[in-house]
Design a binder for these strands. Structure first.
Length: 594
RNA sequence: CGGGACGUAGCGCAGCCUGGUAGCGCACUUGCUUGGGGUGCAAGGGGUCGCGAGUUCAAAUCUCGCCGUCCCGACCA
């Protein structure tokens, strides 16, 4: 029997001053966690019980599709060199040396170790498909740990990896994970969304994130009010209302207009009496690329290359989309001298005319002109003339200037139309609790994993990787259900399902009834916490409301009538229940999924 | 890494400007009291004032350096 009087459950009246988000404040106040350093947390009794329950659910579901491994967190440098990520991971990877001076690191993720096993062991297509998973501690030296458990430097992740002989097999493994993740998060009682995610620079073909809406979230999610369209901001698209182009004046040739001192889109639009929608916004960026990227040689030399973006005047650029458009390279804004060197004009009057742009992305050396898709087909736009105090009319993409490429560079804004059904889109912040990813051949190729296919030909297996943040499930659940007095977890992941409050531990009748009820419920398989402390009822009620247990049984004066009070933490609704019927009462509440 | 704030008892804070033997609330210990929403009274225990230098007869307080934590930004497989 779990007696509160004998347990260590250090609840606090006040949250630590440096806690900002609700889950952080409440998990500390409820005695689940304590901070050890920036982004490093200890889990105490209640916190550990909750994460253990989460891991049990994850295991039960993952065991239906895969096999559990346990890989080392301590990794030698060599396998990370093999995949090329020893350098790529940069400062985000914790690195150390052993006594001989050999380089080691702490694993941030385990594609390398899993692929190492695959390349040493897998020989034939007959051994495929394989799904291997583990529940393991990950280490990431985050530039900025924050928000309690939401962004930390050490955390537990369930990570899984699939190996298939072909793309069709990967589709199947991917779908299995999708379905399994839905079951896991359903069982954990979370309200989540599955959204299309940015595949990033890794060349993956498909990727989805499992997100929980919360103001504490760091990701932006675009979703439809009506249909099930949902995507990460980095990938989301929307339907735009049609825009009326300006009428052609005279012969329609580019026409310079004097716009003294008018630099911003708004100023120029107002000055010329047009809408910003008829204006071109010119953004000047730079990328770093390898000098011989196209020749295949690897000198390691890099050079800077200009990338100029044209957007509709009232649109905002999304950096993740830009990064995708330039092949996953990092971009940075041009500096003043660089702008003058390319445009021969100060910022505020930039435009596409008079510069020889690259014909396509492979056209090395020349500056790249990327035009947002929202400008494709538009005519008679107004942009900068590359001349101080002048803008130019009659700009028509493909006619008066030639883009290197059209690309989707635009950030969706709330209220725009859903690409599927046309209903308004909303934008929310959310926390990522899971991510499934079709990796393709990146690791099997770079690390040289090979199997023989049906025809005796050596081929690389195709891979997928799939992650769940264990602590983030707890954090998201707290974010999802809390008030100023505390939080309530779904019964499946709460440290206890029921707290039995003995309202007066000095009263013999109340005390024995509390113990009897606790024993009864435990015999029926419930996790029960008995609050038998010699405290006033008010103290116990406050603590019970705080610590995340979804149901409470108040054992009070009515025991003489054979009755106790059951309180649901979520609604604070209370009802009197006969002690003789208490087990049955909770059994009826218990979800079948359990 | 850039900008900002903070560091005094387990938690929340005052004291610092104007240097002079460290204080409040909660929590904790003991006794009494109370017993359905953090009871009340009384008596106690607990702090190298983040660390190190410097100024001074004297530093929590002034100066310099370092460390740590949080927030905004950059970053984020």
């Amino acid at each position: 029997m779990h007696r509160w009087s004998e347990l260590f459950i250090p609840t606090l009246r006040e949250a630590p001053a440096d806690a900002e988000v609700a889950s952080h404040k409440l998990l500390v106040r409820a005695g689940y966690i304590r901070q050890l350093g920036a982004g490093i947390y200890s889990f105490l009794f209640l916190g550990n019980r909750s994460t253990q329950k989460i891991m049990r659910i994850v295991r039960e579901e993952m065991d239906k599709i895969g096999q559990e491994f346990y890989l080392p967190a301590l990794n030698p440098r060599e396998i990370w060199e093999a995949s090329g990520r020893w350098t790529v991971m940069g400062d985000n990877m914790f690195r150390l040396k052993d006594r001989k001076g050999a380089d080691l690191c702490l694993g941030m993720t385990h594609e390398e170790v899993m692929t190492d096993i695959a390349r040493k062991e897998l020989r034939s297509y007959k051994q495929l498909p394989q799904i291997w998973y583990q529940i393991q501690t990950k280490f990431r030296d985050e530039p900025r740990p924050k928000s309690g458990l939401l962004r930390v430097r050490q955390f537990i992740m369930k990570d899984a990896y699939s190996f298939d002989i072909d793309a069709a097999g990967l589709d199947l493994s991917y779908q299995k994970h999708h379905d399994t993740y839905c079951r896991i998060f359903d069982r954990c009682g979370l309200k989540y969304m599955v959204i299309d995610a940015h595949s990033g620079a890794m060349g993956g073909s498909q990727s989805q994130e499992f997100m929980v809406r919360t103001p504490a979230g760091e990701d932006l999610v675009v979703s439809c009010e009506k249909c099930n369209y949902a995507a990460n901001m980095e990938k989301a698209v929307s339907k735009l209302a049609p825009v009326e182009d300006l009428k052609t004046e005279g012969d329609g040739q580019p026409l310079e207009v004097h716009t003294p001192g008018q630099k911003t889109i708004e100023d120029v639009a107002r000055f010329l009496g047009v809408s910003p929608k008829n204006k071109i916004k010119t953004l000047a960026m730079m990328i770093t690329e390898e000098e011989d990227a196209n020749t295949g040689a690897k000198s390691g030399k890099t050079r800077q290359r200009a990338v100029v973006l044209l957007m509709r005047g009232d649109h905002q650029m999304n950096e993740a989309k830009l990064s995708t458009a330039v092949g996953g390279k990092e971009t940075r804004p041009m500096q003043e001298e660089e702008i003058l060197a390319l445009f021969r004009s100060p910022a505020g009057y930039l435009g596409p005319l008079g510069i020889e742009w690259a014909k396509d992305l492979k056209d090395a050396g020349k500056p790249i002109l990327l035009v947002d898709k929202a400008l494709e087909g538009r005519t008679n736009l107004i942009g900068g003339a590359n001349k101080e105090d002048y803008h130019v009319k009659h700009l028509t993409p493909g006619k008066t200037f030639h883009p290197t490429a059209y690309a989707d560079l635009r950030a969706v804004t709330a209220g725009e139309d859903c690409p599927n059904c046309g209903a308004p889109l909303r934008i929310d912040t959310a926390v990522e609790i899971g991510h499934i990813f079709k990796l393709g051949y990146k690791y099997s190729e770079s690390m040289n994993a090979r199997v023989l296919d049906r025809n005796g030909k050596e081929v690389a297996p195709i891979m997928g990787s799939y992650g769940i943040g264990i602590e983030r499930i707890l954090t998201a659940a707290v974010e999802q259900s809390n008030d100023e007095n505390g939080f309530w977890l779904p019964p499946s992941i709460a440290p206890f399902e029921v707290v039995v409050v003995s309202t007066n531990s000095k009263d013999e009748g109340i005390r024995t009834a509390s113990e009897d009820i606790t024993r009864q419920l435990e015999a029926a398989g419930f996790d029960v916490l008995l609050d038998d402390r010699d405290e006033r009822p008010g103290v116990k009620f406050k603590d019970a409301d705080l610590v995340g247990i979804p149901f409470r049984v108040n054992v009070g004066k009515k025991v003489t009538e054979g009755t106790v009070e059951v309180v649901r933490r979520s609604t604070l609704a209370r009802e009197d229940i006969k002690i003789s019927a208490i087990t049955e009462y909770f059994q009826q509440l218990r979800p079948a999924a359990r």
